[in-house]
Design a binder for these strands. Structure first.
Length: 553
RNA sequence: GGCGAGUUGGUGAAGCGGCUUAACACACUGCCCUUUCACGGCAGCAUUCACGGAUUCGAAUUCCGUACUCGUCACCA
């Protein structure tokens, strides 16, 4: 086709476009940002639920834009109407809010580069396609599905490269007359790239994370516009990231193999190339096979985003985990800078793992425990209450009813430089602190006690009635406890007992253990005296009697 | 099959030619501290970096092969 014929064809295909490419170029000028500012984007498609991998890339987008004083925007890639799921878009934005990974621009966040949803940008894509047709870089292709399938099979047998290219691209050089008549006959068509690549030549592409990579040039006539006139991912990526002036495309690793295509698209469109940063997917080592595999929602519940909310994993702790897998040196930094937050850390692409990142659940749990240990009793109370209001209404009520006590319970052993580490999720608080609330304690009814001893109720009752002083400090209390132990034939310290076991019935620890079991129903608990102080004498006595009734027959 | 990438302990991983008889964290084990647990302290946990060869005075680190794993090869993103 001559240039004039191509112009005629372009006008035939797209007669009603309101603007030309120049218009869009002027409408969307570059942002006025400081040198080095990064513009990133999270560009999900509403075809399924959000998972940890999505969150990880959105997190990286946010962090890089934020630290460079750039912009992080949300773009909805809804070009596949068939796979759209109901509520998919709302789900994306609500997850972003829930997990506090907030774009400062984009779909539902506002901004000057709208529309930020691809289904509303059809005319823009068509405008650029029209331009490519005129330039001879794109053409309508009428091939039927069966035809393509047949070619594919043939290629498989011949072990040649699969795809529509070279001699297989039969509609590549159709005459204008033929195109016209096929359209008149109502034949459907897609727009394909007229690729000029030479697969014998190599191109080198530098990825911010993976470094230099060499590929053969792209030579497949990839579909740019589908039958329904909407763009494929590749074309939309080129147009949108150019017009929205993305500086760094941070996306999943599954895209690296289309890099030669994207590179070529930017070339023929005359766009300034963007930087790419391909993140390796989160993987897991399968327990049965020992192979690394992609995570499955069924086998790996933590992969779905719901898991975190339902189990009550704090968002900040999850951020910490995302940060540790985003930059390999984050973990150590955070350990040495416990007073600082993620915002103070400087992320960089070359500290990003190149290979697959395995999910380490134990590490997440530990991070959560550390997170909780650094929270005051009041903070733990408030956060747990908020979580319980959504997931355990009964517990939420109990928490509200016992507010002051609970704040104190949650604060035990939290004030020192080495705070207590026991909880890792909001969902564990109820069980962990069941002794703090009468209703729960009674329901539990000493079922948590897993020892086989029977304790001396009389002794403990005597102690509580006649010797226990709750208006003192921990040290004073323990001294009195030692004295009481001694007076009753128990050693004042485990060491004394060890040195001369025959002279004693036991040691202080044994008496403490008896008290602990009676008032908390378990062998392990936070500091005993602190618990007794909050409980008060009446409740302590009540529980000792309860123990007698339940455990002594 | 083509193309691209990865392979370091129980786990996540650092390292990117000599400072490594392999950092750090988590997990686990033992001891210490201690009224229990937790915290904390100490110690143990890869003589070795998938395998084979090459380069080098010197390699986990560079190169070449082999194996395995992952990604991709749609009018899905």
């Amino acid at each position: 086709m001559t240039e004039n014929e191509r112009i005629e064809l372009a006008n035939l295909l797209y007669p009603d476009l309101k603007h030309d490419t120049k218009y869009y170029e002027e409408k969307y000028p570059e942002r006025k940002l400081a040198e080095g500012a990064m513009v990133t984007r999270y560009a999900p498609s509403p075809t399924g639920s959000v998972h940890l991998g999505n969150l990880l890339s959105a997190f990286a987008d946010m962090v890089y834009a934020r630290q460079s004083g750039g912009s992080f925007y949300l773009r909805i890639e809804d070009t596949d109407q068939k796979r759209m799921i109901e509520g998919g878009i709302e789900n994306i934005t609500s997850v972003l809010h829930d997990f506090d990974i907030l774009p400062n621009e984009g779909y539902s966040f506002g901004g000057d580069y709208d529309p930020y949803i691809q289904s509303e940008r059809t005319e823009i894509y068509q405008t650029y396609i029209k331009d490519l047709i005129i330039k001879g870089y794109a053409y309508p292709c009428f091939m039927k599905e069966e035809e393509i399938q047949a070619i594919r099979e043939e290629q498989e047998i011949n072990k040649t490269k699969i795809g529509i290219y070279g001699v297989y691209a039969v509609d590549r050089d159709l005459s204008l007359e033929e195109v016209k008549s096929r359209i008149d006959q109502g034949e459907e068509y897609v727009i394909r790239l007229k690729s000029f690549g030479d697969p014998n030549k190599e191109i080198e592409i530098v990825d911010c994370i993976k470094g230099k990579m060499k590929f053969p040039e792209h030579n497949v006539d990839t579909v740019l516009l589908k039958k329904d006139g909407t763009p494929t991912y590749h074309f939309a990526h080129a147009i949108d990231d150019h017009l929205m002036h993305t500086t760094h495309v941070i996306r999943g690793d599954e895209w690296v193999s289309s890099l030669p295509l994207h590179y070529q698209l930017f070339q023929i469109l005359g766009f300034k190339p963007v930087h790419y940063a391909h993140i390796a997917p989160i993987t897991i080592k399968d327990q049965e096979t020992g192979n690394i595999r992609k995570i499955s929602k069924r086998k790996d519940p933590w992969f779905g985003v719901k898991y975190y909310e339902e189990n009550g994993i704090p968002i900040d702790a999850l951020h910490l985990y995302l940060a540790t897998i985003t930059n390999t040196n984050f973990e150590e930094w955070y350990l040495n800078n416990s007073d600082k937050s993620i915002e103070d850390f400087h992320f960089s692409f070359d500290k990003q793992a190149i290979g697959g990142t395995s999910f380490d659940e134990a590490k997440l749990v530990n991070l959560c425990k550390t997170y909780f240990s650094r929270k005051s009793g009041k903070e733990v109370y408030e956060e747990t209450l908020e979580w319980a209001k959504k997931h355990d209404f009964e517990y939420a009520e109990l928490l509200e009813k016992n507010k002051e006590d609970m704040i104190q319970f949650f604060g035990i052993e939290k004030d020192g430089p080495r705070p207590r580490k026991d909880i890792s999720k909001y969902s564990e608080v109820k069980e962990e602190f069941s002794y703090a609330i009468d209703e729960l304690f009674e329901k539990e009814n000493y079922s948590k006690y897993d020892g086989d001893k029977v304790y001396d109720v009389e002794l403990v009752l005597d102690y509580v009635d006649n010797h226990l002083d709750l208006d003192t400090n921990n040290e004073e209390w323990f001294n009195q406890m030692r004295e009481f132990a001694l007076n009753n034939g128990y050693a004042a310290s485990p060491k004394d007992y060890k040195n001369d076991p025959d002279s004693f019935k036991g040691h202080v620890g044994d008496i403490c253990e008896a008290i602990r079991v009676m008032i908390t129903g378990r062998l392990k608990s936070p500091d005993l005296f602190s618990i007794m102080k909050i409980l008060g004498k009446d409740k302590i006595i009540k529980r000792i009697k309860m123990y007698e009734n339940v455990c002594i027959k």
